[in-house]
């Protein structure tokens, strides 16, 4: 991932304080670039879920680092996340209705529901460099 003008590049440690700081930086960057608050909000929400997926699968022999790249244009946000963990496609988990979560002992499928419901496009690829890459687009939604 190459930093460029008008783009934000963040390398983050896989812990919660680093994630929270990255969320705030992303939100501030996108707001300054003209993304509406609801786009910034959805980006912060989905990035939290994506990074938490990496943190949950980080031990043992999992990811040691992650990076986020963000750009914005015409109110749209483009965000890519890469991590050096084993191949994992968060878009392939089976979604489950949230109403079943009360009875369930786990939250399987919740993350996919969250990512799909709050992005306008999402793509996963395993790169030739051996990293997971998740690209996400967020478009303004009319109120």
């Amino acid at each position: 991932m190459n930093p460029e003008a008008g783009a934000l590049h963040l390398a983050l440690a896989l812990d919660l304080p680093a994630l929270s700081a990255a969320q705030r930086q992303l939100g501030d960057f996108l707001a300054a670039g003209g993304c509406p608050p609801e786009v910034c909000f959805r980006v912060e929400l989905v990035v939290e879920e994506a990074v938490m997926n990496v943190i949950r699968h980080a031990e043992p022999n999992g990811a040691t680092q992650a990076a986020l790249d963000a750009r914005c244009a015409n109110g749209r946000a483009l965000v890519a996340m890469e991590d050096d963990g084993p191949a994992f496609d968060p878009l392939q988990a089976a979604p489950r209705p949230i109403a079943g979560a009360l009875a369930g002992a786990h939250d399987g499928g919740f993350g996919l529901h969250l990512i799909r419901g709050n992005t306008d496009a999402a793509r996963y690829a395993r790169t030739q460099a051996g990293t997971n890459r998740l690209e996400m687009e967020f478009a303004p939604r009319s109120c």
Binding site: Q23, E44, E48, I98, L102, F110, G111, L114
Partner: peptide, 12 residues
């Protein structure tokens, strides 16, 4: 003012 995925999981 903000609730992320961990917050939603906490509510559940």
């Amino acid at each position: 003012p903000f609730m992320g995925s961990l917050g939603i999981r906490m509510l559940i």
